[in-house]
Simulated scan of single mutants.
Amino acid sequence: MNNRVFLTECPRDAMQGIKDWIETSDKIDYLNRLLKCGFDTLDFGSFVSPKAIPQMQDTAKVLEGLDESETKLLAIIANERGAEDASQFERIHFLGYPFSISETFQLRNTNATIEESLKRVEAIANICHKENKELVLYLSMGFGNPYGDAWSSDLIASWSGRLTQLFDVSRLSLSDTIGAATPELVQQVFSTISAEFSTIQISAHLHTLPENATKLTEAAYAGGCRYFEGAIKGFGGCPMAKDDLTGNMPTERMLDWFAEQGIETGIKSSEFAEAFVTSSKIFH
Rank of each mutant, 00 (worst) to 15 (best):
W159K: 02
D168Q: 07
D154Q: 11
D244Y: 14
C128D: 05
G17K: 00
C37V: 06
E196V: 04
R12H: 01
N79R: 11
S175I: 14
R108S: 13
L174P: 05
Q188Y: 08
L172I: 15
R226G: 08
A181E: 03
A231S: 13
S270C: 12
S49E: 08
P98W: 10
V186Y: 06
A112K: 05
G234P: 14
D43E: 15
V186I: 10
A60G: 11
D154Y: 10
K268A: 14
M249N: 01
G237L: 08
Q165M: 02
N126A: 07
V186H: 03
L166A: 07
L206V: 12
T8M: 11
R120M: 13
M56I: 03
M141C: 14
I114W: 12
S46A: 12
L73P: 09
E122N: 07
C128G: 04
G247L: 04
A83V: 02
E70Y: 08
F190P: 07
N109H: 09
E70W: 05
I114S: 05
N248W: 06
G17P: 06
K19N: 07
D176S: 00
T265Y: 07
D243Q: 04
V48F: 04
H207I: 14
V169E: 03
D256A: 10
K130Q: 15
S194N: 15
D243Y: 00
Q55I: 03
A123I: 11
E90W: 06
